[in-house]
C-alpha cells in the first residue's frame, strides 16, 4: 500500500513537471521577442525541473541520493535565474529600439 502511495505521489509530481515543460516549450516558440521567450523558458528551468526532481526524490526514497537531488535543485535555482538575468541585461544594453518592445524607465518618467 505504501509503495502504491509513493508511486502515485511521485508520478503526480513528475506529470506536473512535464506539464510545465510543455508550457515552457509552447511559450518559447509562441513568443517572438527575447524577453518574453526568456520569461517562458526560465519558468521550466526552475519550477518544471524542481517538480520533476521532487518526483524522482519521492521515487528514490529517503537516502543519500535524495540529498544529491536536493543539491541539484538548489544549484539549478541558483544558476538559471542568474543566467536569465545576464541575457536580459545584455538585451537591454544592446537593443537600440527597446522602446518599441517594452516600457522603459524614460517613458514612465514622463
Amino acid at each position: 500500500m505504501a509503495e502504491w502511495i509513493r508511486f502515485i505521489a511521485g508520478s503526480v509530481f513528475l506529470l506536473i513537471g512535464l506539464f510545465i515543460f510543455c508550457v515552457q516549450l509552447f511559450g518559447v516558440f509562441r513568443y517572438k521577442y527575447v524577453l518574453n521567450r526568456m520569461h517562458a523558458a526560465a519558468m521550466g528551468d526552475t519550477l518544471g525541473i524542481s517538480f520533476s526532481l521532487v518526483g524522482l526524490m519521492i521515487f528514490s526514497g529517503f537516502n543519500f541520493v535524495t540529498l544529491k537531488f536536493a543539491l541539484v535543485i538548489l544549484f539549478l535555482w541558483c544558476a538559471s535565474p542568474v543566467s536569465s538575468h545576464l541575457i536580459a541585461r545584455l538585451e537591454v544594453t544592446t537593443n537600440e529600439k527597446l522602446e518599441e518592445y517594452c516600457k522603459t524607465e524614460k517613458e514612465t518618467d514622463k
Binding site: 542568474v82 545576464l86 541585461r89 545584455l90 544592446t94
Partner: peptide, 8 residues
C-alpha cells in the same frame, strides 16, 4: 556592452 562587474 558586455555585462561586467554584475553584482548578482
Amino acid at each position: 556592452y558586455e555585462p561586467k562587474n554584475d553584482a548578482i
